[in-house]
Structures are given as structure tokens and as C-alpha cells.
Design a protein around this nucleic acid. Structure first.
Lengths: 201, 201
DNA sequence: GAATGTAAACTACACGGTGTAGTGTAGTGT
DNA sequence: ACACTACACTACACCGTGTAGTTTACATTC
């Protein structure tokens, strides 16, 4: 017979929220456990009762973050829309983290942690590869409809994500946002270039 | 009348070298000034006599690093060589930091610092944009020779650097090296795609 | 159904241990 | 006179723990 149990998820949740707030604004190292406790409206002891170490708290934070972000819309192939338009949707999905300053802050924090710990980085970025599979599937659908020629959909997907990441995502994560119109021009050109590489076969 | 002066550049240099060694291996935060002094074979006081703060030392380190790396070979347009070959040289120039573990370590360290300080990041990455100008000039030369059609050389250069950065550079900086053949295949495909975008006009 | 017991969850706060940026100073060598 | 060394020392920040006492909510009892 289970004796008494109390619902601790609320406190736990507020601690994670506080940690997100602090990590995002100040970075991992510059955030003390005292500060997180204060933001959470909890005693430090309670924080440690929920998470044995700061690193454990980081993992919980990052899990929630991934859960929210990786609820990425799976863009299905649509015969009605232009290819460029649909690729724009893929790019937009990847760049959505830039719109929310909290997400952006978490990206920065995570990058700072990853850069010190390649293991964690490799493990986590493997998860981000899910987006590549969706795009590869989309490419094959478009190829089946004879709207483009693709020899290696996995490779092409990698190329496209590389273009978006290197041209638009990382620069803005590291340096802060670039002017909207400039970003749009670059995005258009990236998509045009990518499609050009898929037309000749 | 010049009083007495001694050449302090040797000690200063050994301090910077020691800092490079330590920063590269352990990261900025995990490196103490005591450790740097020890590696340099100097007293901590001497370190502080040369560099008032740890941050000043970081800047000196990064300056030397940039000086070495940004001695990038300026690839001149060569009518004899294939375009793909020459773009491969540009890519290789950018990816050279991956070959030297010390440079790679410094990239990681710098990224960790940038991610906490967007101002420094923006200032420094502006310097890296020098590579874009070289490529833009090369593109115009190739266009003048009628080997490709480029409407906006600056934009196209940005696209190419984005492709190389996002597909090859950052992933390997953050996650560690990828298998050589895999990298080569991706590089070839990136270049093919980029050139495809420049042929129709 | 209200009063009451009780253990889990929580608070407040002090403390140990550690690490580190940066300084002060007296003295050595050139 | 100047660069440097050795080393003690300040000042501070932070992770994580120990503890004594308080609140909360569930279970039992009346």
C-alpha cells in the first residue's frame, strides 16, 4: 500500500522554468544555484532535493527545450505549392528558434556547454538530425512527382541544412539577429542555388 | 636620453604561447592565471605586469591566432584550373583550422567566449569577412572570363561561405572531426550545387 | 464531515571546501 | 633602474551539505 505522496511536479516545474530563465539570460556558468532558487521561489535545498547537481538540472532544462523545439512541423510534400515555397517552410522551421529570445538564449547557452564537452554535443546533435530525414523524404516525394532530380536524397538534405545552418542559423545565434530583409534575400538565394543543383540531374 | 630598457618581448611571447596552450586545451574558464604562469615559466606577477587582466591576455592570444589563420592564401583566378578545383581551394583554406588541433582548440575556446559576449563576436567575425571579399573578386574574374554567370558576387560569396561553414566547418568544430571521405563527398556536392546555381544566369 | 495525526516536502540559514582573479612586497639578477 | 621571482594574502563567488524547524496534504479517527 502506497502511503502518502504529494505532487511535487509544480515546484519541480517552477525550478526548471527558473533555470531556463537564468541560463538563457546569463549562461550556464554565470548562473548560480542560489540565483535559480531565488527565481524559482524555492530554497536552495529544495532545488538540490529535486536535482542532485547543477548538471542534472541542465539536462532537465535541455530536455524540455528539445521537447518544445523539436515539435517541428513535418512539412509534407504538396503538389500545389512551389518547391521554393516549401523549402522556405523547411528553412523557417529550422530558424524558428531565432524568433523567441528565450530559445535563442538557450541555444547560446547550450552551444557554450557543447563547446566544452564534445560528447554531449554529439549525442544531442544526433537528435537534431531528425529534421534531415523529413527533408530527404520530401525530396524523394518531389522527385517521384518529376519536379526535380535527386540522386542521393540524404546527401542533398545534408547540403540544404548546411546551407541554412551556415548562412542563416549559426551567424545569428552567435552574433545576434541580422536585418530581416538581408536574411530574406540570402534565404531566397540559398533556395535558388539549392534547387539549381537539383534540376540538371 | 633613453634610459635603460630591456627586451621584454621574449617573456611576453612565452606568456602568450603558454596561454594559447592552456586555453586551447582547457578552455577559457578552466584555465587559471596561475596555470598560465606555470606553463610560461614565469611568476604570476610577471604575467600581470604584461597583461592587466585575463581578458587582455585573451585578446592578445586571439590576435596572434587571427594573424596566423588570416594569413589565408588569396586564391587568384586561374584560367587553367577547373572552377570546382579552385573553389575546393577556397574551402580548404577555410577548413585549414580543422587540421591543427591547437587551432581547433582555439576556435572552440573563442566560440565559448563569443557565445557569452555578442559584441566581441560581432567585432571579430567582421574580420573573418575578409575571406568573402577574396571570393567575390574571384567570382567576378571567372564571370569576366565567361565561365560562369554571377549577378551579385557579394551575395554569391556569402552563399558559398555559408555552405562551407554550415556543412563542414561548424559541425566539426563543435562535434569533432567527421570521417575524411564523408567530408570529401559533402564538399564535392556543395561545390557542384554552388556552381549549378551560377550556370543558368 | 470535521478534527487530528503524521510523514513528506519545504524553508531558512549557516557552513565546509574549493577555486580563482588580482595585489602587495621584499628581494634577486642584470 | 628595470624586469623578474617567490609567495603570502585579500576578496569573493560558488557548489553542495547539514540541520532544525515549519508547512502541507493525505489518512485515519471520531
Amino acid at each position: 500500500m502506497p502511503r502518502k505522496k504529494r505532487d511535487t511536479s509544480e515546484k519541480r516545474g517552477s525550478i526548471i522554468s527558473a533555470a531556463i530563465e537564468a541560463f538563457q539570460a546569463e549562461g550556464y556558468d554565470n548562473t548560480s544555484m542560489d540565483r535559480i532558487a531565488e527565481l524559482a521561489g524555492a530554497s536552495k535545498r529544495t532545488v538540490y532535493n529535486h536535482f542532485p547537481t547543477k548538471e542534472a538540472l541542465f539536462e532537465a532544462v535541455f530536455d524540455r527545450f528539445l521537447g518544445e523545439v523539436m515539435a517541428l512541423k513535418r512539412i509534407p510534400y504538396d503538389a500545389e505549392l512551389s518547391l521554393a515555397e516549401q523549402l522556405g517552410d523547411f528553412a523557417a522551421a529550422k530558424l524558428r528558434v531565432l524568433d523567441d529570445p528565450v530559445w535563442l538564449g538557450l541555444m547560446r547557452m547550450a552551444l557554450g556547454v557543447f563547446v566544452r564537452d564534445p560528447e554531449v554535443a554529439r549525442a544531442t546533435l544526433a537528435c537534431a538530425a531528425a529534421g534531415e530525414d523529413h527533408l530527404a523524404a520530401w525530396l524523394e516525394a518531389a522527385a517521384a512527382a518529376d519536379r526535380l532530380t535527386v540522386q542521393n536524397s540524404k546527401l542533398s538534405a545534408e547540403v540544404f541544412w548546411g546551407m541554412v545552418s551556415g548562412g542563416l542559423l549559426w551567424p545569428q545565434v552567435v552574433q545576434g539577429p541580422m536585418p530581416r530583409p538581408e536574411a530574406k534575400v540570402l534565404e531566397t538565394e540559398l533556395i535558388r542555388t539549392f534547387l539549381a543543383g537539383l534540376s540538371p540531374g
